[in-house]
Design a protein around this nucleic acid. Structure first.
Lengths: 234, 234
DNA sequence: AGGGCGAAGTGGTCAGACCACATCCGCTAC
DNA sequence: GTAGCGGATGTGGTCTGACCACTTCGCCCT
């Protein structure tokens, strides 16, 4: 076993055991190196991995913001992994689209269910979705910004579904999705016409969720994603 | 931007551009350091991240197996990320179970569809699933080994579904699933009785997929996972 | 009592060195 | 001429020691 892997195993064990909880600080790099009898570069490599996976956030200086703080950004690691694997070419865009349909259609169904059940905390998400939709109504909004709003709109329902893992995976897919959508837009016969249709579809999804109609919401988002995918020829 | 992040960006750009394809070797650490005008430790940190994400595999020595080779093990990075985020406690087991139900019920439905369509390449997966099932029949098999066979059995259908991303996520979840299942088994009133039921449920899933009945397969796997989860009280 | 400045401790980076390992090539012995 | 062996070469893995930028805390001087 390589040295930095021993360090990684030690840190993971400590985190799993609750020795360092969320928001707390790991021992300093020099301290860890001495404790484990390894060199500082080896410790750094281990911490770098945790950094990349969104488990810790290294902070310079002194005081409460200094040191490697245990945080939790699941989307960071998952996003980087998905993005790079798409880059290598072994993760086909087709599979990304299919997975997106699967997760999002489930998410909006869950979201609609929560709304129908009068679950607490749903209102802010719906409000945010309405706000994003309104900003997309503007014909002058450039395509790139429209895409950002579009993605934020979709993510709002995933958050509303209330599954942290699904949300993390979807957030991680965001980069890969943005990539293929941007390419797809170039191939469209007419962006303004497509944008108009996307707006209408977004409204249908929002209405279905707000009405608590899970099946309708699910079908609407499925048609929305697959329709664009087909039209853009990805 | 930190130095190692510049290196990382350079490498990602090169991989995305196809400069280093699958199976090819990155330049040596010393060479990269000189090219980018940075030190070797910074290069190493960047490569370590790619290593952790399953993008490259560092190889010592000389010849074809030496150097950082571009590979692709999507499950490596996703698995590590999921495992660690579960460890921090922000990723509830409930969400992992729900996600598993979602992905697996979709996967077996897809698998059944492929079997019904007489898609090529389905037979070996079904054969492997039968083989695993047979090994689980043995009453003397210890619980730990049963779990390994169980997970392999489930993964076989995910592979059969033919979505690389879903397969990667599920493989990544394997560690987290193994953890909660092992804990759950301790709480069971009677392991032999539960094992017998699990065997029967496995057979039902396999039969439904082999028969090409997507709905039945989906319902069977959903009941299987949720049933155990409830009984084990996770 | 107040303000300023330096000590201390953090991660970020660098330079240089040595090690283990795997291959490749040229020399040597047959 | 050929087969075997041993060193040259190049790879990642690790270590040591050092300096830097930054942030906070506390002592000391005014």
């Amino acid at each position: 076993m390589r040295t930095h892997e021993r360090v990684l195993a030690h840190l993971e064990e400590g985190i799993a055991a609750g020795r360092w909880g969320l928001g707390e600080r790991l021992p300093g790099e020099r301290q860890l190196a001495e404790d484990l009898g390894v060199s500082r570069p080896s410790v750094r490599e281990a911490i770098r991995v945790l950094d990349a996976l969104g488990i810790v956030r290294p902070g310079v200086g002194s005081g409460p913001t200094a040191g490697a703080v245990v945080i939790d950004r699941p989307a960071a690691g998952l996003g980087a992994a998905v993005r790079l694997h798409v880059a290598t070419g072994t993760l086909p865009v087709r599979d990304v689209v299919a997975t997106r349909v699967l997760l999002e259609s489930w998410a909006v169904a869950q979201a609609a269910g929560r709304v129908a059940d009068r679950a607490p905390g749903t209102a802010p998400h719906l409000e945010e979705a309405r706000r994003l939709l309104a900003r997309m109504e503007d014909d002058d909004v450039p395509a790139a910004e429209f895409l950002d709003l579009d993605q934020a709109f979709h993510l709002e329902f995933v958050r509303l579904a209330g599954n942290v893992l699904v949300e993390a995976v979807m957030t991680g897919l965001r980069g890969a999705i943005g990539g293929y959508v941007a390419v797809g837009i170039e191939r469209l016969p007419s962006w303004p016409r497509t944008a108009a249709r996307l707006r209408a579809e977004h409204r249908a999804v929002l209405d279905a969720v707000a009405a608590g109609d899970a099946d309708a919401a699910s079908a609407a988002v499925k048609a929305h994603i697959e329709g664009f995918s087909r039209e853009a020829g990805v």
